[in-house]
Design a binder for these strands. Sequence first.
DNA 1: CGGCCTTTTTGACTCGGATCAATTTTTGTA
DNA 2: TACAAAAATTGATCCGAGTCAAAAAGGCCG
Lengths: 261, 261
Amino acid sequence: MPIPSTGSKYTRFHRTRCQTCSLSALCLPLALGAQDMDQFNAIIRRRAPLKKGEALFCQGNSFSSVFAVRSGSLKQVTLDQNGEEQVTHFYLPSELIGLDSISEQIHPGYVIALERTSVCEIPFNHLDSLAEHIPQLRLQLFRSMSKEMGDDRRMMRLLSRKVPDERLASFFINLAMRFQRCGYSPCSFRLPMARNDIGNYLGLAVETISRILGRFQQQQLMAIQGREVHILDFEALNILAETQGCQLDQARTRTSSDASA
Amino acid sequence: MPIPSTGSKYTRFHRTRCQTCSLSALCLPLALGAQDMDQFNAIIRRRAPLKKGEALFCQGNSFSSVFAVRSGSLKQVTLDQNGEEQVTHFYLPSELIGLDSISEQIHPGYVIALERTSVCEIPFNHLDSLAEHIPQLRLQLFRSMSKEMGDDRRMMRLLSRKVPDERLASFFINLAMRFQRCGYSPCSFRLPMARNDIGNYLGLAVETISRILGRFQQQQLMAIQGREVHILDFEALNILAETQGCQLDQARTRTSSDASA
DNA sequence: CGGCCTTTTTGACTCGGATCAATTTTTGTA
DNA sequence: TACAAAAATTGATCCGAGTCAAAAAGGCCG
């Protein structure tokens, strides 16, 4: 499985203006006043946009910056020693990449653009010293990391307790909310990732993804063709996502005896 | 499933001396000089020890402190809206509890002592202001959170890719390393948690845990009676833990055709 | 020490999703 | 626009772990 090496040679730095970025209210500087924002802005760099399939960095690269997604999307992929790859995260606009690399000072996986994507680079040592002087920024950094831990916990629950339909429903609900957060329609969007990536991420075979999508369509939960997604019944999907193995409608007969404590 | 409410009424505060704590080299203050350690020490409180089964805090409680385990062990359990419980973490001495609660300011689950356990309470607002003035502490805090994110990623891989034997092997290797880290024998220890908790944590049925443990014993990988564990062949167990479905020895015949890319 | 409750083990059965295989559709590129 | 390669779908089969059920072992308390 050929993963293209990181193509950007740190060419073409741009000074970026957080002040003019439509995502600044969602991104790290979300709580900063005007002059703090200036300071923050001063340490940011925007790299040349990544092409689809291009790596922002590679597994094993040494860590020096975190990145904020400005537009586009990326996936994190970790290779284990058997060469198996595991998709561990998807990143959408305003989200932070690299917080999991601070402790080891090494990136634990590839991060690869799923489409044409631009990111802001935030050198971590600068970020840290800024965090010393700007309590709001420091707190926001703690919050971001803490939130990611919460997301991870939800993901573990998904992987260890949910059946395939529930996993996929959760996945779409999650994606929808994140799209909505950054200003897109939650119910109509284009999937940035392949079925393969979804399956890998959710711990399911691609074929299973395909079959469940077919089922979702005939249940009128969503309409999908190719990567174009329309969520038709958000509520039903949401219930399916949160419900653990006791979904309402048809299928899955269950002995009625089992009343839990 | 009755979970005892938090019994501690903040009775009996003790001033704790990090300086005399055998875990200080592993815990948050690990990188602090003498006078910084004094400052850190000043904000710590030790609660009265928790009895087995007692909750340090409950799901939904508002967050104000993180905790460091001084002795004993705990589990984190999250209840979803269907009343299903999910064991999401185990905590051993020197490890930090509550970092995942910063973003929501609410504890996402119960944390319950698995045996008689004492913890140090570290009020988060104090910790944060200390982190402002002590760069080493701030960095260590970032590192701890980042490390937890890395652990979570490994857990996701375990849940989505590993077969039951591999999960359990990983679990024991992980536990062994953590015991070793805080000064106990990595190969002989007493399991603080029930089979039930292990199964829940690993996404497996209790019966499966039981069967695999039986297999591990007859393969001479470990000797277990009750909760007393002896790891006999650490290396083999480690290989099993990291290897994905291509373990060496017997069982599991596999068509030899499948050479991966 | 004995009895009760919890935890653990063992057995038998079932079924859901992985896997293999083949076809169809989409995408990228000349 | 057409061709090749990649991605997605559809079908058929098989096996492993969940589930149910029951017995055995262990722990706790009077």
